[in-house]
Design a protein around this nucleic acid. Structure first.
Lengths: 207, 207
DNA sequence: CTCCTTATGAGAGTCAACTGTCATGAGGAA
DNA sequence: TTCCTCATGACAGTTGACTCTCATAAGGAG
């Protein structure tokens, strides 16, 4: 597995990931042939390092990833779960927006093969857990209720939710982000027993 | 457009849709070549009637579709928005579950080309509107709040949400459906000003 | 029963995701 | 420096989504 020629392999791998990252950053559609060409590697080799496009994209996007804790740094001191969830949601959605084409490609490559989807969730889970972890004051919320809240948020804090609003409902990106943040806030408040905001936007820390 | 040879065209079209429906019902992966073969039509002809696989699948799935009103028939008299939303959500999710492979194919074919996604939402919108329409007693909910609720639900009442929980969170289908119905209920209650259920399942009309 | 429109079929072509084979040459060990 | 292994490249192949072209024949109009 890691016997000889380690350096060579690491170099090759890095070149592939770097090329993919580059293309992803460019926002253009990313394909294996393109990545291989950009990395000056044969397509076959690319497939030797990554079983499929999705796993390559996953790693490339993960590279430009933020650390959940770091993402919530501005609210490090805040114990308000609602504010934390709002921030985490917005952060996640904007991250998706900046890597839109790559994320779409990942979903496309993943949706038809639910089997090997392992690994993809990381981002989502990390953020949700971070938002509802330690500093946050969850009151007397019991375990099952917390688990349910996390599932509620998992559905809402997602690229799929974002694309659903922009593609199907034809909402402009900003509007979609606002709407989803609002939804996440509503859910969090509801579970924590507070009264939801009825009309306009939420707390208002948006950007 | 509809000049000559109308019968022939209708027959051909029907054959294609019928074949697609048949395959969809079979639950297997549906491809253009397969549909064409099953319909005893050339692939080229299939593409003449449907610009892409997605639109064909859309129509095939729509064929086995339920009428929103009919879906909520059991609750025709009920004015409780929460119960109506719960029923609509469960109905939608089970429908997706029975056409899983076709729905996955539609999403895959649609996600990378947000441009021509027109037409797909129908189902979702119809159900949401039906659940929150006339018979339902929404209290003094104002227009903007209602619009937001619909967007909240649009994110939750979706195939994407379902697959997110089953694929990424690895929840068994039944559990995922239960969770999403719960989320939809929580949102509805929250917006209507009620207190959410904390721990276990919802009303209990599941199944 | 003609004749002309036009729906179809057949087939080639493109592109991308993969898979597999085989020969070569670069790295590392001795 | 030599030698052997194994990463890599070059290629061929498969499948599915589409696109295009061209010849044929089925339908309907007269």
């Amino acid at each position: 597995m890691d016997g000889g020629r380690v350096n060579q392999k690491r170099r090759t791998r890095n070149a592939i990931v770097a090329a993919a990252t580059e293309l992803v950053r460019g926002g253009r559609a990313v394909t294996m042939p393109e990545v291989a060409k950009a990395a000056e590697v044969s397509e076959a080799t690319a497939y030797r390092y990554f079983p499929d496009l999705a796993s390559l994209l996953r790693e490339a996007v993960a590279g430009t990833l933020f650390d959940p804790a770091e993402a919530l740094a501005p609210l490090a001191g805040s114990t308000d779960p609602v504010a934390r969830v709002a921030a985490a949601t917005e952060h996640l959605l904007r991250h998706v927006l900046t890597h839109e084409s790559a994320v779409r490609a990942m979903i496309a490559a993943t949706i038809t093969r639910p089997a090997d989807t392992a690994g993809r969730p990381g981002l989502r889970f990390g953020l949700i857990n971070e938002a509802l972890a330690p500093p946050a004051d969850l009151g007397d919320l019991d375990a099952p209720a917390l688990l349910q809240l996390k599932r509620d948020l998992a559905v809402v804090m997602s690229a799929e939710a974002l694309f659903g609003l922009t593609d199907l409902h034809r909402l402009p990106p900003e509007e979609a982000v606002r709407s989803i943040v609002h939804t996440a806030v509503t859910l969090t408040k509801a579970v924590l027993g507070e009264r939801p905001t009825t009309g306009e936007g939420h707390a208002g820390n948006a950007r």
